[in-house]
């Protein structure tokens, strides 16, 4: 007899943690793309001219986020993951993303 989703959730946490960590990875990816653009190292192509470069930067970050989510989901599905490091990594990635997208920082570089 197969296990129900509720029974699986009682012992595994891989899928929810994958979704939350992937959100952190996506946020950081956007911060990284933004800072690389601001220091002139890499600018994704503009996808919609009237909106300018932000269309390429945000689209690239969304693609990286979804890719990270797919990989993490696949690797952690049905597993129990130690949450401590995942929590710390997720929060750190989000904080870094906010720092990297903070305009006054760009002026210092």
């Amino acid at each position: 007899m197969g296990t129900t989703a509720n029974e699986r959730d009682a012992v595994t946490n891989g899928e929810p943690l994958a979704a939350l960590l992937a959100a952190g990875v996506g946020a950081f990816a956007l911060g990284l793309v933004v800072i690389l653009h601001e220091i002139g190292l890499f600018s994704p192509p503009t996808l919609y001219e009237p909106s300018g470069g932000v269309s390429g930067r945000t689209t690239l970050a969304v693609i990286l986020w979804l890719a990270a989510w797919a990989v993490l989901h696949r690797r952690w599905k049905g597993r129990r993951i130690e949450p401590g490091r995942v929590v710390m990594a997720t929060i750190t990635l989000v904080v870094l993303a906010l720092v990297l997208t903070f305009p006054p920082l760009w002026a210092l570089l």
Binding site: A5, D9, P16, A19, G26, T58
Partner: peptide
């Protein structure tokens, strides 16, 4: 865009893994 990604992660957990939550 960061907020949208975070909210999507939270929504996935709440809709698909309510018991984990």
């Amino acid at each position: 865009w960061i907020a949208a990604m975070l909210a999507t992660g939270a929504a996935f957990v709440a809709t698909r893994h309510g018991q984990s939550l």
